[in-house]
Design a protein around this nucleic acid. Structure first.
Length: 118
RNA sequence: GCGGCCGGCAGUAGCGAUCGCACUUCGUCUUUUAGGAGUCGAAGUGAGGAAAGUCCGAGCUGCUGCGGGCGAUGGUGCUUGCUAACGGCAAGGCGGCGUAAGCCGACGGAAAGUGCAACAGAAAACAAACCGCCCUGAGCGUGGAGCUUGCUCCACGUCGAAGGGUAAGGGUGAAAUGGUGCGGUAAGAGCGCACCGCGCUCGUGGUGACACGAGUGGCAAGGCAAACCCCACCAGCAGCAAGACCGAAUAUGCGGAGGGUGGUCCCCCAGGGACCAGGUGCGCGCCCGUGCACUUCGCAGCCACAUUCGCAAGAACGUGGUUUCGUCUCCCCGCGGGUAGGUCGCUAGAGGUCCCGCGCGAUCGGGAUCCCAGAGAAAUGGUCGCUCCUGCCGUUUCGCAGUGAAAGUUGCGCGGCGUCAGGAACAGAACUCGGCUUACACGCCGACCGCAACC
RNA sequence: GCACUCGUAGCUCAACGGCAGAGCUGCCGGCUCUUAACCGGAAGGCUGCAGGUUCGAAUCCUGCCGGGUGCA
């Protein structure tokens, strides 16, 4: 059982998908900002943390936005077991040039630490 | 070799390992009456030439009863062809640009009408004449002659009122009523002639746009229609968030229980059907023909008004008002549309690849073969290693150049080695096709033209 | 996915196809002891970009670029 928990997958049930869930997190979640990223987190009853990404069109063209979203998904996939308890997490991206994976991972880690402290 | 021009190809790395994503298939386990849903695993597949802009054209879906006419609105505009269709493509004609290859062209109508043309100029669209030029020339001046001595006649004029002729010349303009030359004339003028241009007629060639030739006219009919407009042709409206199905919560609606426009006719007289009449509706508008659907709270009472009948009382019928009736309220049963959400639409197609054939070509015909993305807060990614490529830096061999007597040193180029960084441009499928337009990194291939040189 | 609309001086807006203008801001000068107000002056524009029609284009047409609005 612990073995399956430690696997680094990112299936559909680990994403926030419906409009209602997004609205709930936006309304009640804790906000934190680091660099070009802003996270909104809310504790959840779901067994695993879940992720939603919001990239407005101001950020850039479709390939650029896709690139950022893929990087953020990958970062979340690799850090999902560092959460103290399951959270619904929304990442809002502000305009910036896409960076490499390690950089996003570092930012996400910093935001996690901030979330735990509060 | 340099420069140009046209067309096409490709669309940035390769191999391996590993962690993930989406879909399909198979297996496995769990669950379910079943359909199905889920867990785990394996295999396969997984962005573009423009997927973009949304500028056109289609399929598909819904709305519209059908047919026709007129209109409105929008679009297209040389010819012939191709195509499912097109504003696309091909070939051709005509005009323009270029030495050429080649490129560009909304390229119907200005003798249906309306409108526009600033400034300049005499005049801007209809025949007129500013300066000129020419003719006649009242008169004026000068000279001469005559005599009646202040009049007549003659000649001349860098003078000239007025009238007429002219459109050659001047000047303005984007544009000024054909151009050049000769004749002609008082001066001029298509007034006449030759050539060119233009119009009309005929002939020949071509499917046609048009071309060529002959005759003829004697110049008329200026420009702008991407100004209104006219002509010809085309077009219903909306869009996959179309549309179909399932369907919580909440709210609402409908029906049953519980019968209703009028007239006539028919039946098995419980009820039902047919026809006629009236009304309403039926794709942007109007009209015509025809068709379809729906018909309304009702009846009685009372009141008011109008009409008709009647001597009158009154009766009939219509319109409006009122509410004492049913209706209503409650309960029960059934049903409906429909929100959140879910499923389908959703990928086999005007499909791709190869070969053969017709055609100048767009394209078309035939055969073989293949199945090739289907997401939905939206799937193609991350990491590591090796190879390859590019760039910066360091070092070094060689060559060239500068400096120096030389050793040396500086710069450039080719190559080797090493460290570091990077793997690219434009850009991400959103129902699907055919085009157009726009964006684009390193490149590659072919046809043609000009110039220079050599053989 | 569609439909519509706009782009002119630093800002807000005008301009029958015929010399691109107004107000505000900013600049210079004047007035004032000084500032504001006021007065005078000058400057500021490839009319979003590229083609075309026209004698002539901010205006008409075509294609791009950028912004905004609406519908479901």
């Amino acid at each position: 059982m612990t073995k399956s928990l430690r696997r680094y997958t990112f299936a559909r049930d680990k994403r926030i998908r419906s409009k209602a869930e997004f609205s709930a997190v936006f309304e009640k979640g804790e906000r934190a900002t680091r660099g070009p990223l802003m996270t909104i987190a809310m504790p959840t009853d779901h067994p695993t943390p879940r992720l939603g990404i919001s990239v407005p069109k101001r950020v850039g063209s479709a390939p650029k936005r896709n690139r950022i979203k893929r990087m953020l998904r990958e970062s979340f996939r690799l850090t999902q077991h560092d959460f103290p308890r399951p959270y619904d997490l929304i990442i809002v991206v502000r305009p910036h040039e896409p960076m490499i994976l390690a950089e996003y991972q570092r930012l996400l880690g910093a935001l996690l630490v901030k979330l735990c402290r509060s």
